[in-house]
Design a protein around this nucleic acid. Structure first.
Lengths: 242, 242
DNA sequence: ATGTTGCTGTGATTCAAATCACATCTTCAC
DNA sequence: GTGAAGATGTGATTTGAATCACAGCAACAT
């Protein structure tokens, strides 16, 4: 156990162990990768990368959460992803473009670890198993994007909302005896931007869903879903697998 | 040159050579993979895979084109992808689910080559370079999905239509002296289903775009785009890279 | 506690797109 | 060629969501 000149807790925690992508690596490889990473912290609301920047590299969220968004032609903010703790981003656009295609902003106090593109390439070359894991991770993200496209193709707002809530149940929800408890990662405004609908419409529909007993709010950020199935029936997954 | 008991022309053409995914492989590897593939043909309108089926495997479109779609809760057909010649599908859902998540239907006479899941896995294990190519291919598809999500988050139909037309220009367009000539892969009904809007709305907006000289129709399936930039300005890419 | 600022719900109004309805125009089979 | 079935354009009407407007609330700093 030699001393390392790294300020963050990643080495002791071996934070990367929590990331499924690196699950196949042994402890030594993890240690070596960790020392190759740059570690940074961001306050709530701070921008991690800005659209058009040069890519930082493959970025793992060690602690905290973040949103990825673009500003549309009409000035609205379209949110594309919400990254929870232990999620990561940057793999996709390291392979496709010179400039970062969207901004990423911390939703709370957030610590990230960054692996530069050359290091990531080395890692993929030397550990083919990680390539396979990355393929699987990208496949999962594509699956999610496909579901979103589907839900956005749907005509009514309720469908989109239900699909989003279901996603949150599965990402941020904790099971309890009265159903799933979910802390929403965004304000109403943020949720509306995620769905690409107006904040007012979202408000009204949420009230309606609460009247219909599909959801219940403890406070504006905390929601209880007594019956996941009921929500699922309203979503794009109705009559669906998984 | 020994005789091979394979009816299709893949071996002589070495059709896989045209697929960027396999660009890094030498001739012998390609030959060996080709012999491992199953080859099938479909008439226009025939279903290649049906939602809920067991996955066929990784599928390359050797000749022809196809659409991937799901039927939504309200009975509409939501098109997710249009696969042109030399494109492929199936990699994503081999990694994520047991059942195929959407149906794929031939848009014309179409020939495909199918690599079973175990063979694909062997290939990825034995040729790490192919894994990297696959990651890149998936990254590109994700980029496209992200653009679609963005355009669907946009409020007006015109934006979505312009984004789709731009995609077609880049996929199916041929440059000529009067601009790009594009043969649309779908009927108006199909295009509307791709965008998740009503056929009538699409018709009206196309007429309007033609009045505004952004596009011109030679016949209902053939379009000329005199100025790609003009179209791009209407799309989600306005003020954008690439 | 007090004012300031931002977040949220809700009514009234407007508007873009869906729907309905129907008249061409194509395609294709026979 | 002729008729039938499907594809397309366009008007009239309806409708769901956006927008506008504002009041109540929570969070926070002083």
């Amino acid at each position: 156990m030699e001393k390392m000149p790294i300020s963050c807790a990643c080495l002791h925690d071996l934070c990367l162990m929590k990331v499924p992508l690196f699950a196949s690596l042994d402890r030594d490889s993890l240690l070596s990768i960790t020392t190759q990473m740059r570690h940074k912290s961001y306050a709530k609301g701070e921008t991690i990368i800005r659209e058009g920047d040069h890519p930082l590299g493959f970025t793992v969220i060690q602690q905290g959460s973040a949103k990825a968004y673009r500003i549309t032609a009409d000035g609205r903010e379209q949110i594309l992803y919400i990254f929870p703790t232990h999620d990561y981003f940057g793999a996709r656009f390291l392979f496709t473009e010179e400039a970062v295609p969207y901004s990423v902003e911390a939703l709370e106090e957030t610590h990230v670890c960054i692996l530069s593109k050359p290091r990531l390439m080395e890692l993929l070359a030397s550990h083919p198993q990680v390539s396979l894991e990355l393929i699987e991770a990208m496949a999962n993200r594509m699956r999610r994007l496909e579901l979103i496209v589907q839900s956005m193709g749907g005509r009514n707002a309720e469908l989109r909302i239900a699909s989003m809530l279901l996603e949150f149940v599965d990402t941020f929800g904790t099971a309890g005896k009265e159903g799933y408890r979910v802390t929403l990662p965004l304000s109403r405004e943020g949720l509306a931007n995620y769905l690409g609908i107006a904040r007012e419409t979202l408000s009204r529909k949420l009230t309606q869903l609460e009247e219909d007993q599909v959801i219940r709010f403890l406070d504006s950020r905390t929601m209880v879903v007594p019956d996941r199935e009921a929500l699922s029936r309203l979503s794009v997954l109705s009559s669906d697998q998984l």
